[in-house]
Design a protein around this nucleic acid. Structure first.
Lengths: 205, 205
DNA sequence: TAGTTTACCGACCGATCGTGCTATCTTGTC
DNA sequence: GACAAGATAGCACGATCGGTCGGTAAACTA
């Protein structure tokens, strides 16, 4: 719904949609390395072998491109991490599965600069409000997902009800963020394994 | 040792040293917002009311400025966080004290963009090797400090010896990084309090 | 076939980037 | 007072930034 709403018979729009998708995929990948602000229109166009003005025909401003890239990254993470994690049982298993997938994704996923959202969250001090809002929205939903997993795990007795579910969700988020940053800095996958152990320890598994 | 090694009687060098220090302080502050790469010589000079070339006379390249800014930030953190934390008893108390000081620093400290090093660690994908190395060195020492605190806490029986000290240090680092990022994104000090509780919970206090 | 819509391009704009070169002050030594 | 050293400024460079404009080719509609 977000991107394609044209008549499928129109070859012009089909071509445009394909281009737009290619731009957004590349933008999300590049932004994980350069950050959302550091992402430059010129370099992005070069990388796609199209002209800057051709790219600009699809997004009226850099800000519009940034917001669309955030939505694209969100869709990619949902497709590759959230939905597969949903196949695991609700609660602890699901949360651990998500974390494992995320840690794999840092090393082998399509984002060469580590997690797209962590790279983008640093920039927002400079970013304009719509960009900040889009990022905050994604992060809210992520923390909510974690918290719901913890609550479900508490309902089923896997995790002590003494623990604050919100705080546990925050702790898990911290482990993943720490893994991303330390792996980026040291290029040492050991931190990903450390994170894997720590998530299990946190959840008493 | 790092900066001033001139004869204290020479007014010329005194003036230069004062300027250099002012540049580095402002650079560290600005870099916490813009990142080390996003930090621009022109804006930095404007902010200090000096000319770009006047600034450039002190640092032969942007890279040299970046590395010097990292060293400066390191000194600031050592002065304001590490040394005060050293007044607390070794082990758990010292680590908790450091974390509390760090979380206060995010909100009220001299770095308006949150922790300087977290903001800078995102960029290094783009950064040149000397910059990466300087950042990795600081982070190594931080994790080492955490780990030593945990080990000492284990020696004195405050923390179970069953736990992996390296993993605990990593977990504490993750909580602090998560607090910084979530506070930056949501501008909600609640995440700092959440981090405070979580550090205590991790260390069994 | 004529006219319209859409995708895309080349050329260009003003601003800013990092970085040099050449003065010009100020402060020191003799 | 002559001279050197160091701090700082003025100016300009090539490159790149985000962004605009007029135009062309292709695809659709009538």
């Amino acid at each position: 719904m977000a991107i394609a709403e044209s008549a499928p018979s129109d070859g012009r729009r089909l071509r445009g949609d394909r281009t737009r998708r290619a731009i957004l995929d590349a933008a999300a990948r590049l932004a994980s390395v350069e950050g959302l602000e550091g992402l430059s229109i010129g370099r992005l166009a070069d990388h796609l072998n199209i002209s800057k003005s051709g790219l600009y025909a699809h997004f009226r401003s850099k800000e519009a491109l940034q917001v669309a890239a955030i939505r694209t990254a969100d869709e990619i993470y949902t497709r590759d991490l959230v939905i597969p994690a949903m196949e695991s049982a609700p609660g602890r298993d699901r949360l651990i599965r998500f974390c494992d997938l995320f840690l794999d994704y840092i090393r082998d996923g399509p984002f060469p600069g580590g997690c797209f959202f962590i790279a983008s969250t640093i920039d927002p001090a400079r970013a304009r409000q719509p960009v900040r809002d889009a990022l905050a929205d994604v992060q809210s939903r992520l923390l909510g997902f974690f918290e719901e997993c913890v609550r479900e795990a508490q309902r089923s007795g896997q995790v002590s009800v003494q623990l604050d579910a919100r705080q546990m969700a925050f702790a898990v988020d911290g482990v993943l963020v720490g893994a991303d940053l330390n792996f980026l800095l040291f290029r040492d996958p050991g931190y990903l394994e450390l994170a894997r152990s720590e998530v299990r320890r946190l959840l008493g598994a």
